[in-house]
Design a protein around this nucleic acid. Structure first.
Lengths: 210, 210
DNA sequence: CTCCAATTGGAATGACCGATACGGTAAGCT
DNA sequence: AGCTTACCGTATCGGTCATTCCAATTGGAG
């Protein structure tokens, strides 16, 4: 009965603790941004003391970068499911857009926090921002490859412009949903966006092919 | 000869001081966001002590809200210039989009800071966020009216969707430029966006009119 | 000149920040 | 048993935060 007041875990478990810390941090950082995420708040939410956070992560910057990395992986597993390759090209593109939209609804932390970091311009750039821009660039390459495959007649600049436009539109629609809440049907908006971009690419191809 | 060490302004000038404070605050807040904007930093940048800031503004929240309001007005004066009503409809729409893009390049603080605030979700919402969403809604109404005027055949839901899409695309392209820097030609991207949305609306009208 | 209201100057306050120091505890290894 | 590694708990550091207090200083009104 003389158990210590603060019941310690039956056993110190580093792996689980790291996850608990990241779970708490992703939630707070996704709501409050970089400066708004205090170690004390993360500590309170995950139940582990600050010293444990600093045992698992070098400093706050390291923690935020790890949050970005893990939330990116979470989103990746949500988005990289098979994706059947049937139907007309435009059907395949809209289906893929819908799939990406669903993944963003299920795992929005990555893009939300990433955009918050991306919009900030501090003297010493947080590592989390760099990580976000890198993985975001990877995603952009995927889109670019898809555009190139579907419209091989387009020249390089047109492909780049269309890719930029497709990604930017996705960002904007995501922001719209973040602002206006769950009532917004992100999947429908992404499908519409995919159709618009596809039609625009088709028209560009016709003009370029003359 | 006992002149005070720190030479005071020849004359205390409330109106000019208020502007100086807002000038400093809009710069810092546009770079660092809400939490990243410290009163001490604003004080250092504008040369006035913290007490003067608190004489002009109730608290930090009030200051940020005032920053949003003034940067919105700055942007409004940049965007509400004549806008000639000549040419075909699609030409007028692209010209207007280009004009908005130019204004956002010249006065990006409003949208940048606003989007940063909009993405955050803190327990007690900053007044600046509310202000941003309100004035943003006004801008959205303008777009909506333009869509309605140009495509009277569209039903209400189509108009709403197109408006959402147009504004979201603008947001996304703006974010793209904020991330990738001055090398991005926002005007060209906005013109492209305007053409795409116009074409999409035209096609929706044809289908709906059958 | 005197008095007042408008503003600035500078220091103080207490809360909170990120980060560290260090001892305690549990499990595994030998 | 003793040593080592991994992790937790507490306490604390110096610094910065938003905010407040109050004493100047100024120009203008009377």
């Amino acid at each position: 009965m003389t158990r210590p007041r603060t019941t310690r875990q039956k056993r110190a478990n580093g792996v689980e603790s790291r996850q608990r810390i990241l779970d708490a941090a992703v939630e707070i950082a996704g709501e409050r941004g970089y400066d708004g995420t205090s170690i004390a708040a993360v500590s309170a939410k995950c139940g582990l003391p600050a010293s444990s956070i600093y045992w698992h992560f070098k400093d706050k910057d390291d923690l935020i970068a790890a949050v970005i990395e893990r939330s990116f992986e979470t989103w990746l597993t949500a988005v990289e499911l098979p994706g059947e390759e049937t139907g007309t090209p435009v059907e395949r593109v809209t289906a893929m857009a819908a799939h990406v939209a669903k993944s963003l609804v299920d795992a929005p932390d990555f893009l939300r926090l990433g955009l918050m970091l991306a919009l900030e311009r501090r003297p010493t750039e947080p590592r989390g921002r760099t990580v976000f821009l890198q993985v975001r660039d990877i995603a952009g390459q995927k889109v670019r490859e898809m555009v190139q495959t579907l419209f091989p007649a387009l020249d390089e600049e047109a492909v780049r412009t269309l890719t930029t436009y497709a990604v930017a539109g996705a960002d904007g629609l995501f922001v719209h949903r973040e602002i206006h809440g769950d009532a917004i049907d992100l999947v429908a908006l992404f499908e519409l966006h995919a159709r618009f971009v596809f039609d625009a690419a088709s028209r560009l191809t016709e003009v370029g092919g003359q």
